[in-house]
Design a protein around this nucleic acid. Structure first.
Lengths: 147, 147
DNA sequence: TAATAAAAAGATAAATCAGTCCTAAATTAG
DNA sequence: CTAATTTAGGACTGATTTATCTTTTTATTA
């Protein structure tokens, strides 16, 4: 994986929340996604501060999206959890590497950064929901063939 | 940087060793590269076990390449220090992501992996030497203009 | 109002990475 | 043979990431 596990958990959590305005408990979400509960709770707190989730405490409380899923980009989540310059710098860490004095991977890595960055700003949480829905549907279809 | 600092240090160290068959002391190399000495020594030990360096103990000892620099690829060094599957898996860590059920970044990330992998197996330590030589030459040229 | 349920917040482990330090082993020079 | 030099190997420290636990705060419900 290119990102940290916390970022991966955050993306899966956002994609796993309902879009009907109902609240979802951290521990239910964690159980459904197979993610450590207390750790996910911490990550959800961060997403609340980053204004992607809102939370309500007490009975009937939980978390929900502050915006429709197609208005939250993958890039926004990555920046919130890892900072804006995740992909900056020489791929091999050479201090002398620059546009004027490129390392042998400089050009390839530059193209990668451009490609990944634009993919991240284009892809939204909605796209992640659709992927998981498709996966579930296909899995069900296969099972239905069996009996 | 995409790789660990240890991998970056290893690449810089290999590129900084002479190719004339002479031995170089770990601490001299560390001083020249601006890398913490004891840490570099550890990394060099690993490169000996990976058969990219050979070492001799005692006075007049040190480290040298086991092969010409153009016979050691960047990919080989990365694999030795980080394992073969550094770039494996979904970029976002989605367990459901696969060729059949791709995440929105699957295709872009796949292209990236192919591109970076082939660049890494093509680029050699010799290319890194040339880059640094060019950098030094250019810097000297600029300084020469001054007085 | 009292009991309960849930997130917020902070302290505490465990694991990995980056870096240091010390002792042992090997080689050379005198 | 002895002393000096240098790598080998292991134990150790500190920072960050991952994960857990406990306490506090907020909200609901009876």
């Amino acid at each position: 994986m290119l990102f940290t596990t916390a970022t991966g958990y955050a993306l899966r959590a956002l994609a796993g929340l309902p879009e009907d305005g109902s609240f979802c408990l951290a521990k239910d979400l964690a159980a459904r996604l197979g993610i450590p509960g207390p750790y996910l709770a911490k990550i959800l707190q961060g997403l609340v501060q980053a204004d992607m989730l809102e939370s309500v405490r007490g009975p009937k409380g939980g978390f929900r999206l502050t915006r429709p899923a197609h208005r939250i980009t993958v890039g926004e989540v990555v920046v919130a959890l890892e900072g804006a310059d995740t992909l900056e710098g020489c791929i091999m860490g050479f201090p002398t590497c620059s546009g004027d004095h490129p390392c042998p991977l400089h050009e390839a890595w530059g193209a990668v950064k451009t490609q990944i960055s634009s993919s991240m700003t284009e892809a939204t949480i909605r796209d992640l929901q659709l992927m998981d829905l498709k996966h579930l549907k296909d899995a069900k279809g296969h099972a239905a063939v069996k009996p």
